[in-house]
Design a protein around this nucleic acid. Structure first.
Lengths: 218, 218
DNA sequence: ACACGGCCATATGTATACGAAAGGCGCATT
DNA sequence: AATGCGCCTTTCGTATACATATGGCCGTGT
């Protein structure tokens, strides 16, 4: 688990809340596939690793359990979740229902600077794909999908979508997607961006729906 | 705050986890309007009230904060949230996007016994409306809307909808809806149920969409 | 009388202590 | 040798202790 090493005591000027830091660390590490599936974390173990007590770890666990990133295994132990195909289907249903609507809205209301942001994200995505860094590419994918509700200031939709993306990510964790898939995803994102830039609501919704149908995990 | 009284020590055979119990208690009390808006809870205060220490209260607060039922006020104090009109608009958007889709699915797949469940819920709703018990009626409203994803075993949609309903509830907290509104809501629910019972997907989706458009908080 | 400054009261954030529950392992018995 | 019983280890759930920050309040000086 690279990037997840014991941290001594917490050197001085770290003003960030421990519990939030633990949450972010764990979330990133898990979604980046740095734990083997089914790994049994444990409040004490993780706390020792990160140099904090059980209390903040416990809070982080609670949140990750709520989001379905962790699950309770036997003997109350928390383990890395392993989304079922049924759950995947639920995620697809919700994304199909939400994201085209958001894209339609975005085409109506979105600011040009936000379109620029999306273009920037895709530049990063292309670079990540070229470098073969699948995690970085998927990070960009998340950024792309999340930027749309963010630009609309739809905090709720952004939060919901963030959960859905995390579970999607968990499900494809470990799979090593082919370059063609990444290329196709990027192309579909570009199509969505074009529709948004053109301010064409229906085209944006359709492009997003097509993207979801085309690249949904199965 | 009726129904939210100090509880001595916890009499014997209560096997339920304290933190979960605190969460449920607080959630119910808040959504039933038993706290004045802006009331400053406080871990110690609530803990004393319920006869538990700060630890479980803290967990409950964290969860309620996540759901937007509580919000952080000045000085890191947690207060009862007061959803903004913008947030209400977001909720409406998401419900409009999700619930008709769920209704359509339900018309395709839903079991007859679940339709019976829905009818049962509406019987309770009518009784609550007749008794003038708005909270009980709204509880039935929540049950109705939540039963659809539950019947489909769509845990994610159910969870998301549960959050949306809670915030909706918070927003209308304190308003004393006219009887005609309750009657109309009940009638619209019946229409949805008829479409579900008939197994007519489009009619179900349309009826749900019409219901949301007609009875959305504004 | 008003303004400024320091103390205090109280809240949260984190760490630790304590108790309970649940498997795992070993020993004894048949 | 197999099986059943019981201790033990480990982990969680809760309580409490400690550290830290922040706003209020009071006293004093002008």
């Amino acid at each position: 688990m690279k990037g997840f090493r014991p941290q001594p005591a917490r050197s001085g000027a770290d003003k960030t809340l421990s519990s939030k830091r633990v949450y972010e660390e764990l979330r990133r590490a898990i979604l980046h596939g740095e734990f083997a599936p089914g790994t049994s974390l444990g409040e004490t173990r993780v706390g020792t690793m990160l140099g904090v007590s059980r209390t903040p770890v416990r809070e982080a666990f609670a949140e990750l359990l709520n989001q379905g990133i962790l699950a309770e295994g036997a003997r109350r132990q928390v383990v890395i979740a392993d989304p079922s195909p049924e759950l995947l289907a639920e995620i697809v249903l919700m994304r199909d229902a939400l994201e085209p609507v958001l894209a339609r809205r975005a085409a109506e209301r979105m600011d040009v600077s936000d379109v620029d942001q999306l273009r920037l994200i895709m530049i990063r995505a292309r670079r990540a794909a070229d470098a073969g860094d699948v995690n970085a590419f998927l990070d960009c994918d998340d950024d792309f999908h999340l930027h749309i509700p963010h630009a609309l200031h739809h905090h709720l939709a952004a939060d919901t979508l963030r959960r859905l993306l995390a579970l999607t990510r968990l499900a494809v964790r470990g799979t090593d997607p082919s370059d063609p898939l990444l290329t196709r995803i990027a192309a579909e994102h570009e199509t969505v961006i074009e529709a948004l830039a053109a301010g064409d609501p229906e085209a944006a919704a359709d492009a997003m729906a097509a993207h979801l149908a085309s690249s949904a995990p199965r």
